[in-house]
Amino acid sequence: MRRFRAIYIIWLRDLKRHFRDKARIFGSLGSPIIFIFILGQGLGSSFALGGLGGFDYKQFMFPGILGMTVLFAGIFASVSIVWDREFGFLKEMLVAPVPTWTIALGKVISGATIAAFQGVLMLLLAPFAGVHISPLLIAELLPMMFLVAFSMTGMGVLLATRLKTMQGFQMVMNFFMMPMFFISGAMFPLKNAPTWLDSLSHIDPLTYGVDAMRTIMLPHFQSRYPLGMDILVVGLLSAAMITVSVTAFSRQA
């Protein structure tokens, strides 16, 4: 009861902070929108890309950009532990009579909630990319987004145990988040990709997340893996990330 309450209040605080920060809510939609409507439009009308499965480029890339939204929002939300450390608030949590793992778990859950919310916000723009959405589709996608978000926030919390200041976040962005995003096949079909890229994509968790979202969103799209496998891989990965990150955080704090 007490632990549950600790997780709940940590979750609630992060959500309050997020929803109060209108600039962050809409600002973080900036780059996905640019990707779809400028890059998507521009590339789509200049190149004929193979392996799109009969969809136009904007439609093809939309689920990928959705994956990117969840990836960035998830990691950013959970790395906020580093901010909490810098601004002292982490101490208030660490000295409370609750186990440390509740803090980490609260952060993972709040980060996933925020990331999934940002994903839903992004989904509302789907019609502009020529992707049909319905309440049913959102209901189908939501669990998948949560699943992807959990693996991302797990990683975020794990990173936060290593990062001492926010200045190190640039490194994470360039050497971790961006490669993960590009290798996942979010922006281009992996069908014609060189072997090294193809092999890397198999170990990129986001590949499975994006593949699942594409399967759900684009009817009759020939997916890379069966949907069941996508869900299994992302699910297992999320469980592993959460366990590892919560343990690591408890140990160092």
């Binding site: 605080r13 902070r17 608030f89 208030e92 949590m93 409370a96």
Partner: peptide
């Protein structure tokens, strides 16, 4: 060690819950 994005009461509430 306060969260300055929260109100004073919210900071107290957070503490009370923990």
């Amino acid at each position: 060690t306060l969260d300055d994005q929260l109100t004073a009461r919210e900071n107290l509430e957070f503490h009370a819950m923990l």
